[in-house]
Every structure is written in structure tokens, then in C-alpha cells.
Amino acid sequence: MVIDKQEQRMIKYLRREVLPTTFCQGCGCGTILNAYVKALDDLEIDPREVVSVTGIGCSSWIPSPNFHGDTLHTTHGRAIAFATGVKVMKPDMKVVVIAGDGDLIGIGGNHLMHAARRNIGVTVFLVNNFVYGMTGGQSSPTTPMGIPTASSPYKNIESPFNIAEVVSACGANYVARWTTYHVFSLVDSMKHAIQKKGFSFVEIISQCPMNYGRYVKRRTGVELLQYFKENSINVEKAKDMSEDELNGKFVVGELIERNRREFTEQLRVLNKKIIQKNLG
């Protein structure tokens, strides 16, 4: 056994005193934190230029308190709305929202849609683990049909959201989807999303071994990641597949890229005009 006295290089971005993380064994949240700081490191972004805004739930604990940077840990579902206020006042900062499916799609779905429509320069990393993990495994807006959960003990009879498609339909400038297995692609997409002007969105399919895994009989991070690996299909390949063939699959890759004008930039242009006119 090799015992490490040095640390993994990315730990310099973390609040050391809170480690190890509070996440369960095999949880995907830590992997996403790992990818997040790697993306910032690759881009050589000073953490002082980044503010992480989160909601409530396990995935909101990814940056709060682990990431050593300005962090707003807000109320359930409202992270994007808080981030809107931040971005308007701090347009030069990288404003990153990290929260889960229950938070951003369930209680906060309205804010997600409107932020994408508004095309505000906020980056959203939506951690989709198909379940309300922190409260004990209730069905969420992304729980697949037919799966039993704590709040649907017989089976979930509701259709899940394809949230990346929804966000892209709302007008986001960049939308991608990866799983926690595709870490290198995920880091690349995160980098792209952070750099992208306008609303950028990465859906990250993640594993909750404790409160989702037990309902789908894949009780470890390894089993769930294996499942992601086997069932992921790249978006390019998926284009030639029928809806039936894609049922139960994870379409991964970059789904949309466009260049609508960013909201806070427009606000500033407008203000400039109004001030000039008003002062004659």
C-alpha cells in the first residue's frame, strides 16, 4: 500500500478543513466537485472570480462548503434566482449554480426556464440523480417510469422530464449532458459552459447509491456507473436511432450551441443609452 503524504493537486481549491466530504460512499457528487475544480484549474480561472450558488439538497453541498470560493447556499429551488441578482451586479464574475434535479427542476423549475429564456450569463450544473436523495429517496421530476421510490412505493407512474431538451427549447446558449462516468468529456463541457456567454447548462447524470440505487437494485456507485457506461449513447449516434431504441438510454454530448445575446450585457448597453439621453 502506498500512503500518500502529498495531496491530490485539486485539493488546493477546497476548504481543507471540511474534508472528507459529507457524501455517501460512491456518491457522484464528489466526482462532480472534482470535475468542477479541474475545469476551473484547466481554464486558469482565479477562484476569486467565481461565485458558486446552490440550493437545497445533496448536490447543493458540492460547492457548499467544499469549494474554497464565494458561496451562496440559498433556499430550496431558488439558486438561479439568487444567481440572477448576483450576475446583474457582478457581470464580470463567473456565476455557477450547482444543484439537483429536485431543486432545479422540481421546486425551482420556473426559475430554470426563465433564466434560459432571459439568457443570463449564469452557468448551471444540474446534478440529476433521479431522486430526492437528502430526504430519503422520494420520486423526483426525473425519476424514470416504473421505478419504486420512497414516495411511490408501488412504482412511479409519472413521466420524467428530459430537462436538457426543455432548457434548450427555452433558449439557452449552451446545453450538454454527460454522466459521472464520462469525466473527461464532463470537464471539457464544464469548461465550455463556464466560458460561454449567455445561459449555459450541463445536465450531469449522477449516481445516488444510497437512496436511488437501492430501488433499482444497484446499491453501489460502481454498479450505477457501470449502468451509465453501458446505456449512454452519444448524441451523434442517437440521431439515427428511433425513440424506442433510445428508451432508457442516456443521450450524452453537446446538445445545443447558439449565440443569443446575453442579458446583463444588454442591460448595460440599455443603461448607457438611457444615461446619455437623460444627461443630454
Binding site: 491530490q8 474534508l19 466530504t21 457528487c29 464528489g30 472534482n34 456507473l225
Partner: peptide
């Protein structure tokens, strides 16, 4: 391994 590790425990 370094990138996927949820705990920053391997490098």
C-alpha cells in the same frame, strides 16, 4: 481514477 474519484483520494 484521479478524475472520477469522488473524494480526491487518488492521484
Amino acid at each position: 481514477c484521479e478524475q472520477i474519484c469522488p473524494e480526491f483520494a487518488i492521484h
